[in-house]
């Protein structure tokens, strides 16, 4: 995972996140925490006609959790709810060490560079915080 810290683009997501702000009129909001790390995150979505028009997050945590959240918000903006769920499931599978197809990795785009985290059990929770929060939010929505 060392290359994450040396990746300028990855570190930019931590130091200058584009999607870290409080949204005006979210249609969805969900909190995620990592009690063992003290990471806290609130994910907000504005969904119109089943499309995620806007995604943002607030909170604090390590660089891995923050950059991962920013990358995710970027990736799911403009996607349908179903596609966002699929991407979240792909990401969570990848981070838990499952081998993804080339195609799936391409779909994850920048998020695919977090693949190496699966070798660092202590950091898996950091990487997946935003995605777990998204998954929980969208799964909860479907159950309603």
């Amino acid at each position: 995972m060392g290359n994450l810290y040396t990746s300028t683009t990855f570190m930019e997501h931590n130091s200058h996140p584009d999607y870290k702000y409080e949204m005006d009129a979210p249609t969805h909001e969900h909190d995620g925490i990592n009690p063992s790390c003290g990471d806290e995150l609130t994910l907000q979505l504005r969904v119109e006609n089943n499309v995620i028009e806007e995604a943002s997050f607030t909170g604090h945590g390590c660089a891995i959790s923050q950059a991962s959240a920013d990358i995710m918000a970027d990736l799911i903006t403009g996607e349908t709810v179903e596609e966002a769920r699929r991407l979240a499931e792909l990401f969570l599978a990848m981070i838990r060490g499952e081998q993804l197809s080339e195609e799936d990795l391409e779909d994850l785009d920048e998020a695919a560079q977090l693949q190496d985290i699966s070798h660092m059990p202590a950091r898996v929770k950091c990487a997946e915080l935003a995605w777990r929060t998204l998954d929980g939010m969208l799964t909860g929505q479907n159950n309603q």
Binding site: G2, Y5, C37, C62, A63, I64, A122, C126
Partner: peptide
């Protein structure tokens, strides 16, 4: 974040605790 500190230190072969 301390976890980032420990992870980067690990790249340099330095074992410290964070948490």
């Amino acid at each position: 974040h301390p976890h980032d500190v420990a992870s980067i230190m690990d790249m340099d072969g330095v074992c410290i605790r964070a948490g």
